[in-house]
């Protein structure tokens, strides 16, 4: 019993089990499989074609591009959480299909010393990263099975502290020139491409990147610095703004966040950091930001 007989195989929208075209003339791409000389769709979505490559792009849930899992690519900057300490490696949750691997050999040790291949190093792994720690890293490599490995071999990468995490759909974070930036309000933001966003107290320029005053020992510290009330307010406001924008599905960039923060500070009641979360205010913010962009 063939239900597809009456289906037009050239229509743009397809669903699993519908044959798209003969595999003699075309190659199969993502979202398809081969069955008896036919390229057959395996997901519900739109048919896409590049030359002789036919693929089906799955169309999913809210707003169509709400992609829940993140697909890692080499060079992506991600924020993740350590889930497991294993032999010579950490497992890091980055919202992808599989947890990413951070090898002991691909982290900077405090003070930039060379790693000695000693057992003592492996036994001390928990002094660098423990389960539950947040870190910022770069995707170093993609494995054949879709897994990935990370590295933190830059002074910009490493353990995160002095701030809070906000999670948004990964589709909202586009690839930018830099994913680290400071807002004028004294808050630093790290936009992870996996949709994890770290909002933290501003790090003064002279304390950055191994210059004088840079505390090498603090790289793996678990202790927050003192954060004053005003900074805490700014961090919370930024986090709430991100929450509102992601709900309205506005792509996040430094300019948009700075604009949104400025707009919020001009409003009455901005001293109450929660006020932005009420629907009326949230709608106004979204309207203001999208109008300016």
């Amino acid at each position: 019993m063939d239900l597809d007989e009456d289906e037009d195989s050239t229509s743009r929208i397809t669903s699993p089990g519908e044959s798209i075209i003969s595999s003699q003339a075309f190659m199969r791409g993502h979202g398809t499989y081969l069955e008896k000389d036919q390229v057959v769709s395996s997901v519900a979505g739109t048919i896409e074609r590049v030359n002789r490559l036919v693929s089906v792009k799955a169309i999913r849930a809210r707003k169509g591009i709400f992609c829940v899992t993140y697909i890692p690519e080499v060079g992506d900057l991600v924020v993740g959480r350590v889930t497991e300490v294993a032999a010579r490696r950490w497992k890091v949750h980055i919202n992808a299909r599989q947890d990413s691997v951070l090898m002991l050999g691909s982290v900077n040790l405090p003070g930039g010393i060379q790693r000695r291949k000693l057992e003592s190093d492996e036994l001390q792994m928990r002094t660098f990263f423990e389960e539950g720690d947040l870190l910022v890293a770069e995707i170093q490599q993609i494995m054949g099975d879709g897994g990935s490995s990370l590295h933190t071999r830059s002074l910009k990468y490493g353990k995160l502290r002095n701030g809070m995490l906000e999670i948004v759909p990964s589709a909202l974070v586009r690839r930018l020139k830099s994913h680290f930036f400071s807002l004028p309000c004294g808050v630093d933001i790290i936009l992870g491409l996996n949709g994890f966003i770290w909002i933290m107290k501003h790090v003064k320029d002279h304390e950055q990147l191994g210059e004088q005053g840079f505390d090498a020992e603090a790289v793996y510290s678990n202790q927050n610095d003192d954060i004053d009330q005003a900074t805490r307010g700014s961090i919370a406001r930024t986090a709430n703004i991100i929450r509102v924008l992601s709900k309205a599905f506005v792509p996040l960039t430094d300019a948009i966040l700075a604009d949104a923060y400025e707009w919020f500070m001009e409003q009455e009641g901005s001293s109450d950091v929660k006020s932005i979360l009420n629907d009326e205010m949230a709608d106004q913010l979204v309207a203001a930001v999208t109008a300016r962009a």
Partner: peptide, 21 residues
């Protein structure tokens, strides 16, 4: 499923142009 997919594509403003084969 088709109805839902069509609705989603429409709400995306037909951003993904389906290929005619």
């Amino acid at each position: 499923v088709k109805t839902r997919t069509e609705d989603l594509v429409k709400s995306m403003g037909g951003a993904t142009e389906g290929a005619k084969l």
